[in-house]
Amino acid sequence: MSNPVIKGTHLCKNYGSVQAVRDVSFNVNEGEIFGFIGPDGAGKTSLFRMAATLLLPDSGNLEVCGLNVENDYKKIRRLLGYMPGKFSLYQDLTVEENLRFFASVFRTTVSQNYNLIRDIYEHIEPFKNRRAGKLSGGMKQKLALSCALIHRPRLLLLDEPTTGIDAVSRKEFWSLLRRLRDEGITVLVSTPYMDEASLCDRIALIQNGQILSTDTPDVVASAFEHQLFAVKARDMYLLINILETCPFVRSAFIFGQEVHVTINDYRNADEDKLVNYLSDKLADVVVYQTKPNIEDCFMELMSNKTKKG
């Protein structure tokens, strides 16, 4: 296998007393979509800023495209496209002016790499004379992505590109990312939304500045070692309260109209125990075994971390 496009080892970053990144190591391989999955404040943006050479780690080593972020930052910047979480284009320049500006900064032209951005830019081209500040959320995102791609970067850094974007635009956006990956561009992306994890080739679950788990989404999900039950009842609020105080319930989390439950002594776990316990307290109880998803795993890993202190 070729060298990783990003190689981070034992990265740390503190802001005063806040430990934003705590001993994080990860590799992003050539040609993959790698996702940081975690809530606000997990340290995702700090890691992005480090990879973009805008922030130096306090300790640890970080190489991007085989170059050191401290010594070779000028070379690295030419090789990457960075789309920050906050819309950072020039609001008072038009769509077309922004695109031309970014092309000229990278000493290229819009026409030179137009085929790479055509699919994205076509959506916003009818508005090319509109000021960027006046675009809708979905269109701003498409323009920002076009600007980040205009010099055909080797690595694309996308910090929470889908936050606040509706489901239809999000779906489109992810299919665009897959197309870019197939063009040979490596993508590092972050999201607080667990359901987007399955759209990545590999993921790192991240919380409180630490990586909880790194692998393909399927392997991360398969590490969940407890038997998981989905429980339904007519009165949801009563159900969750009863489950949370049930002596043999190990964990109980609401998932939409169901509660996902694990029980102590999971080797002997079966539905009947739960059904018997709940049936005389609640109406319309349904219990069945279910498959853990990334969100189940994330919460499991979070609580393991807390228990270990």
Binding site: D40, G164, P192, Q207, Y237, F253, I254, F298, M299, M302
Partner: peptide, 24 residues
């Protein structure tokens, strides 16, 4: 209006529990 963006999944569920409590 789009209440729970960005928080961790455990906190998000605590939030929904509060919503159910209010509804109850």
């Amino acid at each position: 209006d789009e209440p729970t963006g960005g928080v961790d999944p455990v906190t998000r569920r605590q939030f929904w529990k509060m919503i159910y409590e209010a509804a109850a």
